[in-house]
Design a protein around this nucleic acid. Structure first.
Length: 586
DNA sequence: AATGAATGTCATCTG
DNA sequence: TACAGATGACATTCA
């Protein structure tokens, strides 16, 4: 490039030939000649700046309009409609502030985002710095969707606020790696990307993009759409879909990056996506869950979940338990996997929501662990969920506030671990969460009893308790499973305890028997030696007695011809051996 | 990465 | 026959 520009200053035929050769090489690589046209680039940069300024002004106006609308409207919890507000909006500042905070998840940047003007300043700063690196990346011929997400492109060196962010470009790849290392996320990323890709590609060129994008910075009013007073489900879902799409695939950022007109496309959302893809993963998910404790943690929010969170759900005064279950249980929505991710399918389309053992286990496996992960990531969500407040009793405002507040807790926790996500603490927390897996299930289905009650109550009390509450089929099945599992868990523990006790008892018995055996062997040996000694004494006595005996001639008896025998009464006889045999023979 | 202990869960048996 | 408990077998988690 430098060579080319030098050539422009002193163009000679040779230089022009060289330029031509180089240009042809670049054309082969996909670059157009205008890339190297300095004046062309200058014009383009100026045009882009003007466009960006116009965009900023438009966005400011839209923001003002939305703020005004939000101040005037109030979401009807039952109908999901936005009605004129009778009382002043009290949570708006918090919601707005929380929205900014949740998106940024970074102290330094949060402050900037909290102030719209700061954001504009950022945009301005970006607009000023962007051209420095933009030509090679943004020029039309360079459109390359296969290129890896380049964060350096979006990180001018003169933006200290960004470079100081530990989550940003310097460690962005690392953060992505850590994110992708999550088995749950990996599983979730298995969902077909084509749909989201298509959807995103379709929505990107939309002229409404700026307004939709901007709504992301105003979570409290993102459901308002752009400047309309009525709820606009498509926009609502699109907003989340877009966030989700970008969060799922970093390459999506690249798609939008390489759009020829960077100035027009580089809206706030792109800005956000580029700098905080990871954060959106964590930020955008919790709001999607109607029951924070369970859905929380599931990075992959498939379109169904998004659809289920559309204003249509708000309009239902009595939440369908089925929907509630689907919505509240991360396991199901996650296990729904690819085929369920089609936005065209309704939540209950498969029709099988029964909470049988197998179902509960299916939704268990990985999703269970996801719940645990979510509990780790958003402890407050779990705590809030732990209140067991029925979903229907929670106003959408509360939910939205939960959306806003819960993600905010994440940075605090993340700040403690510069290199999460898998640490010993997490594993420990996970193990703790695993202990109450059934509790999580119970909360997911809004079971109005504690697991302890379900498990430990006597049969009569249990039946009485069950009869006092109207539970749907899924809830009943879950309660039965929880009781069965709980009982069996205790039984298994007792069984193992007994088995160990038996083993210990048998080992003790074995030791006793060994000792007795030793004692008996010792006794046997002693008696054997005693017997031997007695035999020896008997033999000595025999010889002594036999040697004292004399016949009539005073002659000693031959031991070969006679032997001594005694009877029971102690009488001793001298018996001739031959005679003896003869006598016996006789 | 391999391995064993601890634990949870299910299927089946038993009283 | 229904049911709770006991237990073997397998899976999962964790150190």
């Amino acid at each position: 490039m430098m060579e080319i520009e030098m050539s422009k200053m002193q163009p000679s035929q040779q230089d022009m030939d060289l330029i031509d050769i180089l240009w042809r090489q670049d054309v082969d690589l996909g670059a157009g000649r205008e890339v190297f046209d300095f004046s062309y680039r200058q014009k383009e940069v100026e045009l882009r700046r003007r466009r960006e300024q116009e965009e900023q002004e438009l966005q400011e106006r839209l923001q003002e309009q939305e703020k005004t609308l939000l101040a005037q409207l109030q979401l009807d919890e039952e109908t999901g409609e936005f009605l004129p507000r009778s009382t002043p909006l009290t949570h708006t500042p918090e919601a707005d502030g929380g929205g900014a905070g949740e998106i940024t998840q970074n102290g330094a940047f949060a402050e900037q985002e909290a102030d719209p003007m700061s954001f504009d300043e950022c945009m301005q700063l970006l607009a000023e710095t962007f051209p420095l690196t933009e030509p090679a990346e943004s020029a039309p011929p360079c459109l390359n969707t296969s290129a890896p997400p380049s964060t350096d492109l979006m990180m001018p060196a003169d933006v200290p606020a960004f470079t100081q962010n530990p989550l940003l470009p310097g460690s962005l790849d690392q953060a992505w790696m850590e994110l992708l290392s999550l088995p749950e996320l990996q599983q979730c990323l298995n969902m077909p990307m084509q749909e989201t890709l298509d959807m995103n590609a379709f929505m990107k060129p939309s002229t409404e993009a700026p307004t939709q994008n901007y709504s992301q910075y105003l979570p409290g009013m993102d459901h308002l759409g752009s400047a309309q007073t009525e709820v606009c489900p498509p926009e609502f879902t699109n907003t989340y879909n877009r966030s989700f799409n970008t969060m799922v695939s970093p390459n999506m950022n690249q798609l939008s990056l390489n759009v020829p007109d960077v100035g027009a496309e580089f809206g706030p959302e792109e800005f956000n996506e580029l700098f905080y893809p990871e954060m959106e993963v964590k930020v955008n998910n919790p709001p999607i869950t109607s029951d924070g404790g369970n859905m929380v943690g599931d990075p992959p929010v498939n379109p169904i979940d998004l659809q289920s969170f559309s204003p249509g759900d708000f309009s239902s005064g009595k939440p369908d338990p089925i929907v509630e279950f689907q919505d509240s249980d991360s396991g199901l929505s996650l296990d729904a996997s690819p085929h369920m991710s089609s936005p065209g399918k309704s939540i209950t389309e498969d029709g099988s929501f029964g909470f049988s053992d197998s179902d509960s286990e299916e939704m268990e496996g990985s999703p269970g662990s996801m719940e645990s992960d979510y509990n780790e990531i958003f402890p407050l969500v779990y705590l809030n969920d732990g209140s067991q407040t029925p979903l229907s009793e929670k106003s959408s405002t509360e939910k939205q506030e939960m959306k806003l507040k819960n993600p905010k807790m994440e940075p605090a926790e993340a700040s403690g671990h510069s290199k999460p996500p898998f640490t010993k603490d997490k594993l420990k927390k996970r193990s703790e969460a695993r202990l109450s897996r059934d509790e999580q299930r119970a909360k997911a289905l809004q079971i109005p009893f504690t697991v302890d009650m379900i498990i430990n109550l006597p049969v009569d009390d249990f039946n009485e308790m069950m009869s006092k509450h109207q539970l749907n089929e899924a809830q009943l099945a879950l309660v039965r499973d929880i009781r069965r599992r709980g009982k069996n868990k205790v039984a298994a523990q007792n069984c193992r305890k007994r088995k160990l006790e038996n083993i210990v008892g048998l080992e003790y018995e074995l030791d006793s028997l060994k000792e007795e055996k030793e004692r008996l062997m010792k006794e046997k040996s002693e008696r054997s030696s005693n017997l031997k000694e007695m035999k020896q004494q008997l033999s000595t006595l025999y010889q002594e007695v036999f040697g004292m005996l004399r016949d009539e001639n005073g002659k000693a008896f031959s031991p070969n011809e006679f032997s001594l025998q005694h009877t029971a009464d102690g009488t001793v006889f001298l018996v001739p051996r031959l005679k003896k045999t003869l006598v016996k023979n006789i």
